[in-house]
């Protein structure tokens, strides 16, 4: 209901939404492989977009799904722009995979977390998003379906496939 108040011009309610969801959004961007500083910028961008497109909020679905749809777009736009800038700067297009910024921290090479980061980085973007939303952001499958635009059942099947692929990546990394 808070977002409907923001939509009707009560902008200070966005402050409450921010307090309620900032950690969840920050975690979403960080778990997708962005470094903490970029993740904070992207959280900011999501709220800027919420203000800009507040009239598009209908209030008939889950707020979290609407917010994460916006967050997915913000992440996609950021990486598209970053990749373009790198190509413009003369980087070989094959080396452009900025998604893994936060996955290259050598300080936790020995950590179990590093293995997960490595494996997650090898997943296609869409599958990584699904696992981040379901495991780390604890979204219900119904909300995931609303976020990515499919039914609840289809969301479960897709998360299942993503998890299976992650399992295979783990096995490959262990045998190397």
């Amino acid at each position: 209901m808070l977002m409907l108040k923001v939509k009707s011009g009560d902008l200070d309610k966005l402050g409450l939404l921010y307090e309620r969801h900032k950690k969840r959004l920050f975690g979403f961007f960080y778990n997708l492989g962005n470094n903490p500083s970029v993740s904070e910028d992207l959280v900011q961008n999501v709220f800027v977009r919420m203000l800009k497109y507040r009239s598009s909020y209908a209030g008939n679905g889950s707020f979290a799904a609407w917010m994460f749809r916006m967050a997915r777009n913000v992440n996609y736009d950021y990486h598209k722009k970053a990749a373009r800038n790198k190509i413009a700067a003369g980087t070989d297009p094959e080396d452009v995979h900025v998604v893994t910024d936060g996955f290259s921290d050598k300080a936790d090479m020995e950590d179990k977390a590093y293995q997960i980061k490595r494996a997650m980085a090898q997943l296609p973007d869409e599958k990584r998003e699904l696992l981040v939303l379901s495991k780390y952001r604890e979204m219900k499958f119904k909300e995931i379906g609303e976020t990515i635009g499919c039914s609840e059942g289809a969301a479960k099947v897709r998360v299942h496939r993503a998890l299976k692929e992650l399992r295979n990546i783990f096995l490959q990394l262990e045998t190397v």
């Binding site: 920050f26 993740s39 179990k112 997960i116 780390y136 998890l163 992650l166 783990f170």
Partner: peptide, 16 residues
């Protein structure tokens, strides 16, 4: 699948 799901839990997220 359950092992993989649990293993994912080792990834910690910092605070903003």
């Amino acid at each position: 699948l359950m092992d993989t799901w649990d293993r994912m839990g080792n990834l910690k997220t910092p605070e903003p």
